[in-house]
């Protein structure tokens, strides 16, 4: 199948470390490019060769299913040589530092490194030590830019625009890099963002990011076009943030009753993996008229293909 490829793409950054660093032109460039790959991914022959001869290394220090497989598939569909390394059981365990790992990999001349790390800023550190572009696949609580981009793409495909929409982000904002990246991006694209969480899961001074904050979910959801749920990140909780999961579900779990406060045509998003019955009612998660969760995964591959293509140049 013939795909029209944009030539002479210019992006202002060498690396994709966070939405914070991108201009609105950069964002539009990535989103436009992503559109071209959506169709490709739905066709029978999904393979292009625009990254032929390029080497992509996926460096995952944290377990990940969808992001890692999405990046791997994206690279392969563009014809790159993809190497995925799960760092949980390698040199790092033998005491090697991130910088040493970076130097080692750099000596193998990769064209792009995709990194996920549990420490905020790890991708920034890596980018200072290697010659190739670095794509952030999530660093600590800081940013997860490709997730925000795929969320934006999903919203645009459903609602035809982002500007003027009212978007609620609910749940564990404190530990969420997805929330941070989405707040930057959705603000940039002209949406009104409501952030909903119990105070214990709300980052300090988040309102300075230009969002409305709510501890009452019903109020926060009022007239929203998009309801973005976040996973409760139990693995990052170090002390008692919540009394119990059932109480959390009672107050912050998305149920049909609560959803009634949003617009009738509101759509539900979730970056996955979901805790069914904790942050979201399982009926809503599977409601094909409201939930676009599967679509997010599908478009994720397209967004990552666009990012690989643009940042490999």
């Amino acid at each position: 199948m013939a795909i029209k490829l944009n030539k002479a793409i210019k992006i202002s950054q060498k690396h994709l470390l966070g939405i914070q660093d991108l201009s609105i032109n950069d964002v539009n460039l990535i989103l436009d490019e992503s559109q071209t790959f959506i169709k490709l991914n739905q066709s029978k022959n999904k393979r292009l060769n625009i990254l032929n001869g390029k080497t992509q290394i996926n460096l995952f220090f944290e377990p990940s299913t969808r992001t890692q497989s999405s990046f791997e598939l994206a690279g392969k569909r563009l014809g790159a040589d993809v190497m995925s390394m799960n760092m949980g059981n390698s040199a790092i365990k033998k005491g090697e530092t991130l910088i040493d790992t970076a130097m080692t990999l750099n000596a193998m001349h990769p064209d792009i490194i995709v990194i996920r790390h549990q420490d905020s800023g790890a991708c920034n550190l890596l980018s200072q030590k290697v010659n190739c572009s670095v794509l952030n696949a999530g660093d600590g609580r800081r940013e997860h830019p490709t997730q925000a981009l795929l969320d934006a793409l999903t919203i645009i495909n459903r609602k035809k625009k982002i500007e003027g929409l009212k978007i609620a982000i609910c749940g564990d904002i404190l530990h969420s890099r997805v929330a941070r990246s989405n707040i930057y991006l959705l603000n940039m694209l002209g949406a009104e963002v409501n952030v909903i969480a119990p105070t214990n899961l709300m980052p300090t001074e988040i309102e300075k990011f230009g969002v409305n904050t709510f501890t009452d979910m019903n109020k926060g959801l009022k007239d929203c076009d998009i309801v973005m749920m976040l996973r409760l990140q139990n693995e990052r909780m170090t002390s008692s943030f919540l009394s119990s999961n059932r109480e959390y579900y009672e107050y912050y779990g998305l149920t049909p009753d609560k959803l009634d406060h949003a617009k009738p045509d509101a759509i539900i998003m979730h970056p996955g993996p979901m805790n069914r019955g904790i942050e979201i009612d399982t009926r809503l998660a599977d409601d094909i008229n409201k939930s676009v969760i599967k679509e997010q995964v599908e478009l994720g591959v397209a967004v990552r293909m666009a990012c690989l293509k643009i940042f490999c140049d």
Binding site: R177, R180, T204, E205, F209
Partner: peptide, 15 residues
Amino acid sequence: NSGIIATKLGLPGIP
């Protein structure tokens, strides 16, 4: 320090 910089950098803060 706990505050907007900590929130932005994704680092836990000290109030």
